[in-house]
Design a protein around this nucleic acid. Sequence first.
DNA 1: TATTGTTATACTCTATAACTATA
DNA 2: TATAGTTATAGAGTATAACAATA
Lengths: 160, 160
Amino acid sequence: MSMAKRKIRDAAAQVDVSDAVLARFLGYHLKRAQTVLMGDMNGAIAPLGLRMITFSALAMVVANAGLRQSQLADALAVERPNLVVILDDLEERGLITRDRVPSDRRAYALRPTPAGRTLFDEATAAVAAHEARMLAGVSAADRAAALRVLAAIRHGAGGA
Amino acid sequence: MSMAKRKIRDAAAQVDVSDAVLARFLGYHLKRAQTVLMGDMNGAIAPLGLRMITFSALAMVVANAGLRQSQLADALAVERPNLVVILDDLEERGLITRDRVPSDRRAYALRPTPAGRTLFDEATAAVAAHEARMLAGVSAADRAAALRVLAAIRHGAGGA
DNA sequence: TATTGTTATACTCTATAACTATA
DNA sequence: TATAGTTATAGAGTATAACAATA
């Protein structure tokens, strides 16, 4: 009986922790994976002076030269006020320009500078390499399936 | 020529925005899907007075009665200071108890109350129903594949 | 009136240092 | 000396209201 008591006290002192309850939910894995991937990616492009959000903004400007800030905010799902400081950073570093649109002088057309294009190329290579490394053990079929699932989540939320 | 000029001005005024550059990266889809899913799930359990993080903590306490705060913090990947306020909330609402561990009076053993178990059951049903709805159009094989990919990301980051 | 970009602000989330009481 | 929980605080990330310039 003192043996049984001992066991109870040990159990109280230290418990084997299982996350099996939460592991049933994809949302749990999604959040954890997102946190890890985001942190890792930020570390990969930090030497270039970029974070994921600034890289994303730069990438969109490179691929869609001339777009407006409001369009970019919509495309990145970022609020307009929060985009301002991101673009301030890119502009101050000479990676993009903000040009007044002649036909609508309220708006700015965003365009990459040559330096912006160069940095974008470097950052893209870094991000691609890092993502390839993190998904090294994953089959192409699984990656494609994961993309389908993520797209369903992203677009299917409205039906909730 | 005025026609060409017109075209250029229109192009400057409005550009078709494509995210094809970013869409190559799984991390982009991961972040967007995570934001949508998290917001949706929070909305689903808000009527129960829970957020995803408080639900996760409650679920872990229900499934691992007697565990310590530091163990829970590790399991949820939450910093110890940030867990305190989460547990304060659950304790004040009578969903869990913090009991001194006799063999180590520095530590607290966390246990669910009957009310906590009941709310956990309700919240679990709500979360499961919502996740099922969001993944309604996704095959079981794709879900399994997505889980494998997310697990690889979560555990493979150290190799970066 | 409505819209673009901006400023100010607030709220959440996350991260770190330092304290207390125990060990 | 080290550890469990706590406090205070600071930094990201995200959200809304309101303003000036322009439509």
